[in-house]
């Protein structure tokens, strides 16, 4: 049975670490993404931001930010002695959702470039579609296995035993 009160220390550190990493990466991507737009409009081809093989973007950065913020809010909920499991799960779901989304985009880009040979993709490389959140995927996957996967597996087991 769930309650709105108390929570384990375990979750607390996971939330804090996870949120810090996500927030830092998010801020970096958003700031660099804004820079990139600036550099693009001023047509500074040589700008060092353009040299990053994985181009940053404001909105992709926001997708990381939101996960970081959810976990951070969860951390503060923990400190207040309340149950932050929901924050952990929602953060994981959003993170995995976006990772999946960007992988799909990457795959369609590959298809557009190599199978359809679209003009827009002439000097496109697969690196250009590697969104930053994809690099962070080990974190939500780890958390999912640690806190969610375990219960799912256990439930499966229980179901199997019952039937």
């Amino acid at each position: 049975m769930e309650t709105l009160k108390n929570t384990s220390k375990d979750i607390k550190t996971s939330l804090l670490l996870g949120s810090l990493i996500f927030l830092i990466v998010a801020l970096a991507e958003i700031v660099l993404g804004a820079f990139k737009i600036y550099a693009d409009t001023k047509e500074l081809e040589e700008h060092w931001v353009n040299a990053i093989p994985f181009p940053p973007g404001i909105f992709p950065g926001l997708s990381i930010l939101i996960v970081g913020l959810v976990w951070l809010a969860g951390y503060f909920i923990c400190i207040r002695g309340q149950n932050a499991k929901g924050y952990l799960s929602v953060g994981i779901v959003i993170a995995l959702g976006f990772i999946l989304l960007f992988i799909v985009i990457l795959l369609t880009d590959v298809f557009n470039a190599y199978a359809l040979k679209l003009e827009d993709y002439e000097d496109w490389t697969a690196l250009a579609s590697l969104r930053w959140i994809i690099f962070l995927s080990p974190i939500p996957i780890f958390l999912a296995i640690k806190y969610e996967g375990f219960t799912v597996l256990r439930r499966r087991k229980e179901q199997l035993q019952q039937s």
């Binding site: 769930e2 309650t3 709105l4 959810v70 149950n83 499991k85 929901g86 924050y87 799960s89 929602v90």
Partner: peptide, 15 residues
């Protein structure tokens, strides 16, 4: 009547 997982999630998405 008890608090469920769904309630915990609601507390986040309606934050």
């Amino acid at each position: 009547t008890k608090v469920t997982r769904s309630d915990l999630i609601d507390r986040v998405v309606t934050h």
